[in-house]
Amino acid sequence: MTRYALITGASSGIGLAMAEALARRGRNLILVARQRDRLESIAIELTQRFGVEVLFRACDLGEPLRLSGFLLELEEGERQIDLLVNCAGIGTSGPFLGQDWMTEQDLIEVNILALTRLCHAIGNSMALLGGGQILNVASIAAFQPGPWMSTYYASKAYVLHFSEALRVELKKCSIKVSVLCPGPTRTGFFSRAQMDEQKLIDSKLLMSPEEVALYAVRALDRNRAIIIPGRRNRWLAALPRLGSRWLVRTIAGMINKAYCPR
């Protein structure tokens, strides 16, 4: 039976770069995102370039009923998934009390609830198959609190800790769990989070999605638990452990506030 890598958030950014990196290695793919037209063109392109089978499903992971339908479709189908890559994510910036609640709820639904549900459903399928691999995408934001992006930072801390815990639990099922914690990456994240993109987009501190994806797939080969692409980002992830909690959250708040919408 043919096996597939399922990638959420596959229409752009790190998700798209992961799809290309895995297709280049001959992996068959199932791509999931909101934009059907975009997914269809990506699927055609990857199939033509790499000769792999690329399926796609337009699904808003922030809507539980649609996610339920998608998971039921996977359960009733004959396609086996031996790699799950949870890339889908949402960011917001600005004062928490000034945020539209529905946007905040959507962030929690996608970043936390959908990711957790996919791990549960597909993890159970992998256990029946005798093993598999899960890669959840967090951020170096996961290592500290983030005033003016409080919900986003907290959601990524959840992904980090949840993934580390699953790694221990699922080892007995031969399921390998890793968590990718990239630093700032040259994607559409900043504009979608309504941050000041001009201050960031030309920064030499940003990695490209392709660099992040290449580092990630190589780290998956080595079964790394926590994957942090870039020496500078590994240094930034370690810094919060060296300072007081007060200092860490104060500095993070100052940096985030500088890039928030006025």
Score class of each variant (00 low, 15 high):
residue 252 A to C: 12
residue 132 G to T: 10
residue 43 A to C: 03
residue 145 P to Y: 04
residue 151 T to S: 13
residue 198 Q to T: 14
residue 254 M to Y: 04
residue 238 A to P: 08
residue 24 R to Y: 03
residue 197 E to Q: 10
residue 91 G to N: 08
residue 196 D to Q: 14
residue 49 R to E: 00
residue 12 S to R: 00
residue 24 R to A: 06
residue 56 F to R: 02
residue 120 H to C: 05
residue 256 N to L: 07
residue 150 S to K: 08
residue 160 L to P: 07
residue 237 A to G: 13
residue 150 S to T: 14
residue 113 L to Y: 10
residue 128 L to W: 05
residue 176 K to S: 12
residue 238 A to W: 15
residue 114 A to T: 03
residue 252 A to H: 05
residue 185 T to K: 01
residue 30 I to G: 01
residue 189 F to H: 04
residue 169 E to G: 12
residue 201 I to Q: 06
residue 65 L to E: 05
residue 262 R to V: 08
residue 233 N to I: 10
residue 239 L to N: 06
residue 31 L to M: 01
residue 239 L to V: 15
residue 240 P to F: 12
residue 229 P to Y: 12
residue 153 Y to H: 14
residue 161 H to E: 15
residue 39 L to W: 00
residue 89 G to K: 10
residue 151 T to G: 09
residue 200 L to M: 13
residue 71 L to A: 01
residue 156 K to T: 11
residue 221 D to L: 14
residue 180 L to M: 11
residue 149 M to L: 09
residue 188 G to F: 00
residue 99 Q to S: 15
residue 148 W to N: 06
residue 188 G to Q: 09
residue 50 F to R: 00
residue 242 L to H: 04
residue 17 A to G: 01
residue 50 F to C: 02
residue 212 V to D: 05
residue 27 R to S: 04
residue 262 R to W: 05
residue 226 I to M: 09
residue 237 A to P: 12
residue 153 Y to V: 06
residue 133 Q to V: 01
residue 165 A to C: 14
residue 156 K to P: 05
residue 213 A to S: 03
residue 75 E to A: 10
residue 106 D to H: 13
residue 88 A to N: 06
residue 181 C to A: 11
residue 256 N to D: 08
residue 53 E to A: 07
residue 136 N to K: 11
residue 16 L to Y: 00
residue 164 E to F: 10
residue 219 A to V: 11
residue 23 A to Y: 01
residue 198 Q to P: 02
residue 70 F to Y: 08
residue 239 L to S: 07
residue 134 I to V: 13
residue 196 D to V: 13
residue 93 S to G: 15
residue 99 Q to V: 15
residue 98 G to Q: 15
residue 235 W to R: 14
residue 166 L to V: 12
residue 112 I to C: 15
residue 100 D to M: 15
residue 154 A to Q: 11
residue 55 L to Y: 04
residue 131 G to E: 01
residue 94 G to K: 11
residue 80 Q to K: 10
residue 223 N to T: 07
residue 167 R to I: 08
residue 52 V to L: 03
residue 195 M to C: 08
residue 253 G to Q: 06
residue 51 G to Y: 02
residue 151 T to D: 06
residue 13 G to E: 02
residue 108 I to Q: 13
residue 239 L to I: 14
residue 107 L to E: 13
residue 53 E to C: 11
residue 215 Y to F: 15
residue 24 R to L: 02
residue 98 G to H: 14
residue 127 A to C: 06
residue 77 G to E: 08
residue 19 A to V: 00
residue 178 S to D: 09
residue 229 P to K: 12
residue 103 T to L: 15
residue 18 M to S: 00
residue 38 R to T: 03
residue 90 I to A: 10
residue 124 N to F: 03
residue 190 F to Y: 13
residue 142 A to M: 10
residue 73 E to F: 09
residue 213 A to Y: 06
residue 57 R to Q: 05
residue 180 L to V: 06
residue 87 C to Y: 01
residue 254 M to P: 00
residue 48 Q to G: 08
residue 210 E to Y: 00
residue 202 D to L: 12
residue 152 Y to R: 09
residue 243 G to E: 02
residue 255 I to L: 09
residue 130 G to Q: 02
residue 195 M to E: 12
residue 79 R to Q: 14
residue 243 G to I: 05
residue 182 P to D: 08
residue 28 N to V: 05
residue 230 G to C: 11
residue 241 R to Y: 14
residue 192 R to S: 10
residue 257 K to D: 04
residue 230 G to K: 09
residue 200 L to V: 08
residue 226 I to L: 14
residue 33 A to M: 00
residue 190 F to G: 04
residue 28 N to H: 11
residue 132 G to P: 06
residue 242 L to A: 09
residue 31 L to D: 01
residue 104 E to D: 15
